[in-house]
Design a protein around this nucleic acid. Structure first.
Lengths: 98, 98
DNA sequence: GTAGTACGCAAGTGGCAGCTTGCCTGTCAA
DNA sequence: TTGACAGGCAAGCTGCCACTTGCGTACTAC
């Protein structure tokens, strides 16, 4: 019935959506990179642990894949799960009639 | 920056997503129709007020438009706001390389 | 008018999600 | 080995969200 509630739960938080924006702008960032850029570009003062937990939620939703390399962990965006949304509720072709 | 947080908030709840499914299956239902069909088809025992509040959230997100006619209030689905999702994070063309 | 229907409003409650805090593990350079 | 860096784990707190409860309003049939 309700496939992938983690997907919608992940999209429900504003900070997580900004993280997706950030990864869409520059893919493969580490946790500290994301923290820094969120503070710089978006003025978000979230702590490192908060961002880490957000990334875990995004990864559980399949929107972010991780790749370990030494002591670094790179995060990659995957917009594939978003396809389930438009497949579930087909989007009309432009505006309705006034 | 973060356009329409109400949209993602509305999609965050499983009951609201089922309501969208129901309206996609049969558009223009009243509150009591939706209550009945949710109980029948989906086994959800939500009260009338709960469904009413869910519909208010969906309407605030622009996913549902209402039309009053006498003492009835018909609810119509509008998937237009969903377009903001796929426009914000473009969906890749099928699977990544293995 | 009266009863019944369809729906709205508002206060109160319980549970969960996001955040913090503190400590720990693993990796690299000196 | 020692220190610094990148990240993880788990308990506790707080605010919000979904739901209930109770009453109120508008429309319709009789």
């Amino acid at each position: 019935m309700d496939a992938a509630p983690e997907l919608f739960r992940a999209l429900g938080d504003a900070t997580r959506r900004v993280i997706l924006d950030e990864l869409a702008d520059r893919d493969g960032q580490t946790l500290f990179e994301i923290c820094g850029r969120l503070a710089m570009k978006h003025g978000l003062g979230s702590s490192r642990q908060a961002i880490s937990q957000h990334l875990a939620v995004l990864e559980q939703a399949g929107l972010v894949h991780t790749r370990r390399q030494g002591r670094y962990k790179f995060h990659h965006l995957d917009t594939g799960p978003l396809r389930a949304i438009v497949e579930r509720w087909p989007i009309d072709r432009q505006e309705p009639l006034p």
